[in-house]
């Protein structure tokens, strides 16, 4: 591709821009690299009063474990503190939330995109207001009824709550996506004798996957990253990963156990890295689709 005239820049500006960009990239990436490296050290090195360089070279780690890298933090978190249980719970919650909210969302979003009536617009506006609600305000509404009806603490409860909190966003995204699929497609199927649902099933479902995958990614992030709902609604044995990390902080500040939190933080971040690596294009297009239609 040839450089457009408008893209040519004087050398000083180019250097300034590049310098700024490099600075930003360091700011964005360095904390993760630092924590990843530090998670293989002992606490005395990761939090070093003497010299921050210790976190890189690891003299105390060498002294305590015999090598400059140690997996103790990971062993302590995953085996001793049973972080694997939380990881399993997270997996269940995330898979269920993504599947259910996509099912509900595609049906609802399709209906909203094909309805010519004014109430479709009102429903979307209500969804926007719901989207703005901080989840913790809703949580304070759940607690009392959930205690009364013995729903508190179970994974299915958290799942359905997360699905509901996720719906407004899912609806907005999928509605704008379905609007881009020409109406003529399903209408011609209906002229050929399909019912509305058959048209949806045989004509729309085969072409909707790109939009559904993009929306699914964001549902995944919401369920995976949630703290407010899972921390308040799940009992200790059903905890997912994020509240579990928070509980490491509260209870195990002593005896180098902060490294459990550090290693579990790295464990939680790793899948997200992989996700961004594979789905970067979808994430970017999803974010911008909302903006363009917004």
């Amino acid at each position: 591709m040839t450089t457009r005239i408008a893209d040519r820049r004087p050398a000083t500006l180019q250097i300034l821009l590049s310098g700024f960009l490099i600075l930003w990239l360091i700011v964005a990436a360095f904390p993760f690299l630092w924590t990843l490296w530090g998670s293989f050290k002992v606490e005395g090195d990761f939090f070093s009063k003497a010299d921050w360089m210790n976190a890189i070279t690891g003299p105390l780690t060498q002294a305590q474990t015999g090598s400059s890298m140690t997996g103790d933090g990971y062993y302590g978190a995953w085996v001793q503190e049973e972080f694997w249980r939380a990881a399993l719970n997270s997996l269940i919650v995330v898979v269920a939330v993504v599947c259910i909210s996509l099912t509900f969302g595609t049906l609802g979003g399709y209906a909203l995109s094909r309805s010519p009536y004014r109430y479709a617009f009102w429903l979307l506006l209500v969804a926007l207001v719901f989207r703005a609600m901080p989840p913790i305000t809703l949580v304070s509404g759940y607690l009392l009824p959930f205690f009364e009806w013995n729903l508190w603490g179970h994974l299915p409860t958290a799942i359905i709550v997360l699905v509901a909190i996720n719906q407004p966003f899912t609806l907005w995204m999928l509605t704008s996506f379905f609007r881009n699929i020409p109406k003529e497609l399903d209408e011609s199927a209906m002229v050929d004798g399909c019912s509305r649902f058959q048209a949806f099933r045989h004509v729309i479902i085969p072409v909707m996957w790109p939009g559904v995958i993009t929306t699914g990614l964001f549902s995944f992030l919401l369920a995976y990253n949630d703290f407010a709902v899972t921390a308040m609604l799940l009992s200790k044995e059903n905890q997912t990963m994020i509240p579990k990390i928070a509980s490491f902080l509260g209870t195990t500040q002593t005896a180098g156990n902060v490294m459990f939190a550090v290693s579990s933080v790295v464990s939680v971040t790793a899948p997200l890295f992989v996700l961004v690596m594979f789905f970067q294009r979808q994430i970017v297009s999803g974010l911008t689709a909302g903006a363009v239609k917004g």
Binding site: S140, A164, F200
Partner: peptide, 23 residues
């Protein structure tokens, strides 16, 4: 429309609208 929108509406009604009322 109602049938398509029902699952989504139920979820939002039960877990967003009612909790606001409950709060």
């Amino acid at each position: 429309f109602l049938w398509f929108f029902l699952p989504s509406a139920t979820a939002m009604f039960l877990f967003i609208a009612l909790p606001i009322f409950s709060v």
